[in-house]
Each structure stands twice: as structure tokens, then as C-alpha cells.
Design a binder for these strands. Sequence first.
DNA 1: TTGAAAGCGCTAACAG
DNA 2: CTGTTAGCGCTTTCAA
Lengths: 330, 330
Amino acid sequence: MTGIDDVARAAGVSTATVSRALSGRGVVSAATREKVLAVAGELGYVVSVAASSLASGRAQSIGVLVPLPDLWFFSTVVSAISGRLLPHGYDITLFNLTENPAERRVLFDRSLRRGRIDGLIVLSAWLSAAEQAELAALDVPVVGIGPSPALPTLVVDDVAVGRAATAHLLALGHRDIAHIGQSDGDDFHIPTLRRRGWEQALTDAGIAPRDDLYAAGDFTLEGGRAAARRLLTGPAPTAIFAASDEMAVGALVAARDLGLAVPGDVSIVGVDGHELSRFFDLSTVDQFPHAQGERVADAMLAALGELEAPAEVGLPFELVVRGSSAAPPA
Amino acid sequence: MTGIDDVARAAGVSTATVSRALSGRGVVSAATREKVLAVAGELGYVVSVAASSLASGRAQSIGVLVPLPDLWFFSTVVSAISGRLLPHGYDITLFNLTENPAERRVLFDRSLRRGRIDGLIVLSAWLSAAEQAELAALDVPVVGIGPSPALPTLVVDDVAVGRAATAHLLALGHRDIAHIGQSDGDDFHIPTLRRRGWEQALTDAGIAPRDDLYAAGDFTLEGGRAAARRLLTGPAPTAIFAASDEMAVGALVAARDLGLAVPGDVSIVGVDGHELSRFFDLSTVDQFPHAQGERVADAMLAALGELEAPAEVGLPFELVVRGSSAAPPA
DNA sequence: TTGAAAGCGCTAACAG
DNA sequence: CTGTTAGCGCTTTCAA
């Protein structure tokens, strides 16, 4: 491996100057900088992270903590983060947060603490308060996406999301609007917030939210289908607001299986902006996951002093009306 | 930060002994090892990767090169790799291979060469031969998934996959079997191999493959739908073999849109074992992506000397017959 | 089985 | 603007 002194020798300068020229820290005359860059290029020299990190304290890597890396939403966000951080010289270290307590301990006690990362991005509402506190106690900046009691995070106003979806259905003339979600009463729980939005919108319209128009789903296609089947064979609402696009597609299929036309007999609205929603012509509240990844990456860069701190505005969302929602049957 | 000499002092031994006790390299008496482990635990000491890596040459991290991290197949494989490598103390560094030439250069010239990784796992058939050669020239072991001219990889026999799907349809009595895929004539191109399998199975059955029963799809839902629409409104085959589950689901929807019953009027078979295939009751050739991730992780561990080299067998696949395939209409 | 000590390859004062 | 030099915190000979 060619090292920094090979470059120094070939360029006729000291290693300190090579370091300065290559890192951009400290002053170097334009002429020597160019010389050094040229020589380094010819020699194919690349700074060793290990040595650089040991000497400088900077690891040139950002950790991303993900609960379910194979969920479309998370992998999309990670992909966006990666794209944003690469140009700044940061690599991405992926930490898969499993349910396994032993693995979690290894993760929190060792992986995250061995100095590999300059910062941590947390994509998980599924951390205990204690775990969130542990993260906050790391000696690196931590930023996240989603409501959290202990971490600085970027959030979508999920109550407003629920209201937007429900208000859309109300405006179309629906009154029996069901909800598929997963409410646990926690203020930092996204599904709970979306359910609140549903309740608020109904209440604002002078309609009492009915418990029998709520069905729990587990955010999968199958869960959405099962929940919708229960709703449509029971109280038979004219519209369903599902807390995710995957559940909404499940509901779409359930309706078809029951011989119901969408949106003729029942309207369906989801949340996410998932690729499936476009394919199935599903009305949804898009929350722009890719943009979320970019925003959280920017927040991290700001925390690292590499960027101006961006304005503190909530993450955007937008109702996208497609073919799955229309006026209720006459 | 507590360092190795804090531990050494508290345990009453030298730093060399602490290092040996914690790393498991070199001999330490059982008694001292326990003492050291206990003290390290109390102090919450964690070895610094930077220092350890600089001194030992081991970075404790494996790179994973992924073309499209947000595709279900890839994110599933990455997730499995991560689960397998964590217990061995390796972190995962995710390298997102984009189409952007500038980003690719940064990746190949810097990120991959700065000594952060002890090995590289390549999930990409989309590397040029030159790039594959560059990877082979890294000073770390490289293993991949999918056919490659220059890299050691684990492969599914994709010709056999195509034959299995087609043979299934033939056995049901179909003769006009269409294929949706993407063939470019390259021997290291998975879609091409699947198409060959389709052709071989037909030929073996005494049926000449027809060009008008082939339609190109881009491995998306939309691409599958468009291709199927062309096939079903044209030569009207009684069965379609799609080279991916996403395209197969697209075909399923296209058939319904045209008023055709599946499998009554047309049978459909996909490839992958995608979650969508189960939900849509789609017959498919499962290639067990999660197991692929574990297998390639094991291959990496073997290359690093942490595991016995596993037997050199091809990656498994299996025809899963569900409700989308049946005998052709009478 | 353990300890002393020489680096690993860089960076960042500090001097000049 | 550039060079000298002392570490950064470990690992690993080598000796004992």
C-alpha cells in the first residue's frame, strides 16, 4: 500500500503538507496543493481511515439504525441518506435493530460504542425510552425520523395526516368512514397519531367516531386485507382510511374479493406514497420517504458542522387523489 | 472515554494482557481472562476500532455493494447478511452503487480503498467487466451473488429456474406459453438465462419458442402489466412465465383489467418468492433471498477464515405452486 | 503465561 | 505557508 510519506517524498513536501492538501484543513498554497493532488492521484493514494480516524477523531462514517431494513419505507430512506452523505465523504454503517435482546445488547453496548461512527441516524420509533436515552448518551450527534421523547427528530404531523385523509373522504360526502390502524395510546406512536387525526376530523364534522368502524391491522398487505374483510362484512362503511399503503392495498383486494367495487361501493385511502399505491391507483397521503432521508441526512450534516442548520420545519406530506376514492353510493 | 490502560490498571495486568483477553488472540490464563472481562464490563470499556484496526490491520467491517438498496430483493439479502455477520463482530458498511459515473468513481477510487472493510460482498450483476476486475484487485476478499465473469460468486441456476417454471406450465397442458423478461444475450445476465430456460423447456417439449410470445419488461409492476397487456391483446397465450414476481403481479392485474380470469383464462408464474407473490396467490419459483444473504455471508466468513469453507453447491430454488396456474381453458 | 516496547499511518500543535 | 514532532489507542513481537 502506498502511504502518506510515499506521496510526500514524490511531491517533495512533508507529510503534514500532504495531509493538509488532501483534507482541506489548514492552509496550503494553491501550487503545492495541486502538486500534491496530482502526485496522490498518480500513485493511487487513499488516506487510511483507521490512521486518520485515530489521529483526528473523525471516523468518516455515519451509522443508520434501522428496525426492518427490508421494509420499503426504511430501505428507501436509507438509500436517500446514502446518496446525500457520500459526497461529503461519509460511509454508511448499517445497524439492524432486531427484536432479539442479546443482539440488541451487542448493538448498544459494543457496535455503537466502538468509535466507528461520527453520528447516528435513528429510523425507529420502536426503541424503549431507556434505549433512546442510551443513544442520547453516545458521544456523537444523534438525529432521527419520527416522534421520540428523548431524541431530536424530524417528524411528520401524523395527526394532520390522519385528518387530511379523513377530511378528503368527508368532503366527498362519506359519513361512515372506517379506519385501519394500530393504536396503543402512546403519544409518540405514529399509528396512534393517525388514528387521532381520523377521530378529530370526524368530530369536527359532527360525526362521532365509532369503535366498530376501527380495525387493527399490522401494516402488512395481509393485515390490511383481514381488517378490511371484517369491516366490510360487518358495519359496512362506505369508505376506509388505512394507516399505510400496504394495508390500503390489502383492503382494495378484500373489497374486490367481496364483490365490492372501488370506489363505486367503497372508497379507500392510504398513507405513504408507496410504489404500490401508484400501481393500484390508490389515493394516498404521500409522505415523501426519499425526501425524508435527504432531510435527516442534512440534519446530521448540520449537526456535524458541515452544513448550515436547515430551517426547523416539519416534514411535508400531501394528499394525492387517485382512483380509489369518490363519492359514496347514492 | 475509558481506554485499555484504564482496564489494565484496574485489573492489575498489562495492556498486552487486556488486549489478548478481550480479543481471544494469544494465550491468557482463565483466571486473568475472567478478571479482565469483569473489569472491562464494569468500566464499560469497548475497544476502539480505529486504534485496533490501525494496529492489527483488521477493520471489523464488511462492505456490501448494492445497486438498488430499495428493491425488496436486495434489502432482504442485506438484512440477512447483517444478521449473520453481527455475531462475528462485523459491522456492515453499505455502498450504494448508483448509475452516476462521478459517484461510481468516488466509490471505487476512494470509499472501497480506504481500508474500512475486511471484505466486500457484491450484490450486483450490473458491474462492467472493468469494474469487476477493479474489485478483484482490492486487497480484501470479494464474494458476490449472481453470475459474474471476474468475481467468485454464488449463483442460482437461472436456466433451470426458467425451465422449472415453464415445465410446470407444460405439465398443466399449456402449449402457448409466453415469457416476460429482458434478454440481452449476455451469459452473465440473469434475465437472459431465465429466457434460455423458457426456450429450452419449450424445445424439449417439441414446441418452437415464438418471438411474438416474448415481451420485454423492466422488472417493475408497471413493466409487467404493460408487457402482459401486449401479449394478451395480441397472440393471446394461455400462460405467462414472468421473470420476476413483480412483473407477474403486474401481469395478473393486466389480465383482470382485460376481463380475463386467472387461472381460468390464463395462467401466470413468477420468480423470486417475493412477499407479493404470497399475497396475490401467485405461483412462483422461490429463490429464497434471505437464505442467499446467509449463504453469501457464510462464504465471506469462510474467506476470512472464521468458518469452515461451506460446500460449493448452487443456491437452491423451488417451484411453489399456488392459485395462479392451472390447466388451460378447454 | 505475562510484560515491555515498538510501531500501525496519520493529524495537529508548534515553530519557523 | 511549510516542516518537525509528539501522539492517537491499540496489537504484537520479543524477552522473561
